[in-house]
Write a protein that binds this DNA or RNA. Structure first.
Lengths: 137, 137
DNA sequence: CTGTATCCGTAACGATACTG
DNA sequence: CAGTATCGTTACGGATACAG
């Protein structure tokens, strides 16, 4: 009965592995910041609290659904704080918590690396693509 | 004819915005590391070169397709190097380039933050979920 | 051993309309 | 203003079979 070994082995691995990942802090955070809008939102909130609609304008292109959804996720993780002011038109402000600010700083390191090395990456990309062209021709 | 203003405005914004994002270094890198397997591969390669199948085992659960696809993306960006040894069973090793090692270090900052603050995040999450339960009850 | 090509299911995302 | 609910699409990831 070794005919399904590879597939079943992978499946078994994946089970144990998923459990492991659920407890893996870096994986959890990587998942968070990999959300399409999280990085933008963190940046948008970095220089002070913003209203819901203000955020909608700052990250240009986000739908209400994704804005709310992303904000909720961030709020759940204690990264942003939601403050409701019960005025005539309701007013809601979002702000980074200290925790959220910390994450933002960590992500900033990645951003710094990116800005410092983007040219090298782009150059590598060009080289790779040219090579691919050459080899197919 | 202002009935479609909001939608069309968003669409227009998104066009300009996508162009902007394409040139945004941090966005580009965030997109890279948001690839489900990039983080794991970076970590797997951090302590030295590995063979294709070795990587497959280290990141337990990855399919050949995703392994190759991710490796190719990394190689294209100059983050990993692929070395083929034309032996009887073909042998292929992958290693981090200096560029790739640099990115790994940047991501490590995020990992460090994650490990330092995972408990706070988890606590926040519990609090949020309890609150949600309470409010619906 | 090291991939490549194909098919398929899921889940993320986006657009829209509607509510408090 | 600040969301929520629903629907459609699409792109990502996984399984499988096959090739060099």
């Amino acid at each position: 009965m070794a005919t399904t070994t590879a597939a079943q082995r992978r499946e078994a691995d994946r089970a144990a592995y998923d459990a492991f990942l659920a407890a893996c802090p870096s994986r959890m955070v990587l998942d968070r910041i990999s959300d399409k809008w999280v990085g933008l939102l963190l940046a948008a909130l970095a220089d002070g609290p913003k209203r819901y609609s203000e955020l909608g304008r700052r990250v240009a292109g986000v739908s209400p659904k994704m804005l709310t959804q992303t904000l909720r996720g961030l709020e759940r993780d204690g990264l942003v704080e939601r403050e409701v002011t019960a005025a005539v038109p309701v007013r809601v402000d979002y702000r980074l918590t200290p925790l959220g600010a910390g994450l933002h700083r960590a992500v900033l390191h990645v951003k710094d690396w990116a800005e410092a090395h983007v040219e090298e990456v782009l150059a590598a990309r060009d080289r790779y693509d040219s090579r691919a062209d050459t080899e197919s021709g």
